[in-house]
Simulated scan of single mutants.
Amino acid sequence: MGITFLNNDNEELDDELFEHYKFISPKGQSIVRVDKFLMQLIENTTRNKIQQAADRGNIFANGVPVKSNYKVKPFDEIKVMLAHPPFENRVDPEDIPLDIVYEDDDLLLINKPVGLVVHPGHGNYTGTLVNALAFHFENLPMNSSNRPGLVHRIDKDTSGLLVIAKNDNAMALLAKQFEEKTTEREYIAIVWGNIKEDEGTIEGNLARHAKDRMQMAVYDDPAIGKPAVTHYKVLERLGYVTVVSCILETGRTHQIRAHMKHIGHPLFNDARYGGDLILKGTTFSKYKQFVENCFKILPRQALHAKTLGFEHPVSKEYMRFDTELPQDMAECIEKWRVYSKSHLLED
């Protein structure tokens, strides 16, 4: 029976879970409690530690959290997921090109491309932004998670601006601005549907989805999750999709993705939140082919971190940086413009 590790492409801002072990019980597996099952397979652990992991909801059977008395059956997939990467300090310098928008003695701004994971995690020990930073810069300060230079993060398949601290003073003062919500962060997104209001605010605590731990969900109960506020404004209506600007007041895990789904407008081609299905439109085969072509042009969630503003930690000058939309999003929007002009679309 082998151990495999999850490929962690989920760039979270907080409350991460990393898969430490995954076991597939064999065909002849006898019925046994999951804590005893894991005791036989995981070295250097105790039954008490396994039971504690189960109590925290960190042991999964076939994707569902289970208690320590769960009975393992043949062909069950058992995962142990914990809140820290098993090898969190492992960073190998790699010569990965960086698109540096601005740099001085205290910080730098990077325009992160789609597909670049921000920091190492299980399955992603190489090829990340942190690996690139370790190669190009020496003695970057560590953040509270022991990750060099990182002040904030964005998802692997979200493009756009990130600020990197180059010394401890910059790290502390920039992190304080993010914590106190004084930074300016604007994202551009394409969402499914025609949003009725020209602008609005989405509020609601975010926490992991009760059934799908890889999703975040909105909860009305203030005791669940963390407060999250997203301000949105319609930029362009394109029939079955809408281009919106999202201003973050808070920076929670998958905040825009979860908030937009919550109001019924998932991000276009966001597979994790259901946006990779044809959610609005007709049943005509030509329309279906059009949407599939858009998915091919934009093979990821339609989200770009366009604008970032903050006070410089040393000069105290307010700095505001802006980027153009990446080619895949720009091409997708243009295709929808052409389609919406040549077809009579319904809301």
Rank of each mutant, 00 (worst) to 15 (best):
L98C: 04
L41K: 15
I78E: 09
Y273S: 06
E203N: 14
V32P: 03
E88Y: 06
E324H: 11
R56I: 00
Y232M: 01
F284E: 13
L344D: 14
Y21H: 14
A134L: 11
R257I: 01
L303N: 06
I42P: 11
R213H: 10
T183H: 09
T126P: 01
Q301T: 05
Q289V: 01
H20F: 01
V80N: 06
V130H: 09
K36Q: 09
K196E: 15
L325C: 09
D328L: 08
D221G: 05
L162P: 13
A210Q: 15
I24Q: 09
K36V: 04
N293S: 08
Q327S: 13
R47K: 04
I202K: 09
D212I: 10
L161H: 12
D328W: 09
N131F: 10
R257F: 02
I59V: 05
M171L: 15
L13Y: 09
F268N: 09
I50T: 02
L162A: 09
T253Y: 04
N205R: 13
P93A: 01
P65F: 00
F321L: 12
I333D: 10
A330L: 05
D347N: 12
R237K: 15
N124S: 05
E334P: 08
G281A: 00
L277I: 05
K181W: 12
V234E: 11
D328P: 14
L162R: 05
N69T: 01
D35K: 01
N293T: 09
G149M: 08
A132E: 14
T307D: 10
I24N: 02
G160A: 07
S145D: 15
I154E: 12
A132G: 12
T126M: 06
I188C: 13
R257M: 06
A228G: 08
D221W: 07
T242P: 06
L82S: 06
N194A: 13
N111K: 05
D212V: 14
Y232D: 10
V80A: 00
G123L: 11
E103R: 04
K335N: 14
Y125I: 08
I278A: 03
W192E: 12
L150Y: 08
N169W: 12
K112P: 03
I59T: 00
D99R: 13
H312Q: 08
P299M: 07
K335Q: 14
V117A: 12
L107I: 15
R47E: 13
R47N: 04
G127S: 04
A172H: 15
R337K: 15
A223E: 15
E138G: 03
N7M: 10
R257H: 05
E236M: 03
P227V: 08
S245I: 02
D92F: 10
A302D: 08
T158W: 10
L82I: 02
L345N: 09
D220N: 15
R337L: 04
Y125P: 14
E19R: 11
D157W: 11
I202N: 06
E88W: 04
L277M: 07
L116M: 15
V229M: 11
E311Y: 13
N8S: 10
P93W: 05
P97C: 03
G251T: 05
Y318A: 05
E138H: 13
S68L: 00
G275C: 06
N48A: 04
Q177H: 11
L6V: 00
P120Q: 07
F37K: 00
I110V: 15
N44Y: 02
N169A: 14
R56F: 06
H304T: 07
K176V: 01
G225I: 01
Q289A: 04
V241H: 02
S315F: 02
L298G: 02
E94I: 00
I3W: 07
